[in-house]
Design a protein around this nucleic acid. Sequence first.
DNA 1: GCCAACGTTGGC
DNA 2: GCCAACGTTGGC
Length: 163
Amino acid sequence: MPTDDRRYWLMKSEPDAFSFDDLLAARGKRTHWDGIRNYQARNFMRDDMKKGDRVLYYHSNAKPPGVVGVAEVVKEAYPDHTQFDPDSKYHDAKSDPDEPRWLMVDIRALAALPEAVSLDDLKANPKLEEMAVVQRGQRLSIQPVTPAEWAEVLAMGGLAGRF
DNA sequence: GCCAACGTTGGC
DNA sequence: GCCAACGTTGGC
């Protein structure tokens, strides 16, 4: 895939639930990103996330919160099976199996950042003042990242020019 | 644990 | 279609 088609994203996960280390330890260093129950985030996955897209892996509800690793999309949007599982906390009784409401993608870890980039670090960098994750009240768990923001965060994390 | 910000739900 | 009530997110 030509790099000029590649898009960049930030995906949040609570490390207590599924950390970047958990992703590194998973088989194939990959997982399915289940549990997204927000329409805007779903639409990003459905409409815009393509195989090969790069992902900033962000720890929310962490001490400190911030970007800890990079990953890539390895499978494009498909139905999230947990919506049909009555025992799952993500169960959605209103979702029609013939037209699943919720989707997920698969991602694979590429590398941990040698230096984690905390939310404070992101906020302190004037080049990143437009970045979604530093905006007040921004709760979206999947956010688009510009190529410039991607390059800057990787440089801050010690992976300048890679990925 | 608090609570501001935000998204969703449901009565009307 | 409005909007109050409610639930969730996530930094602090």
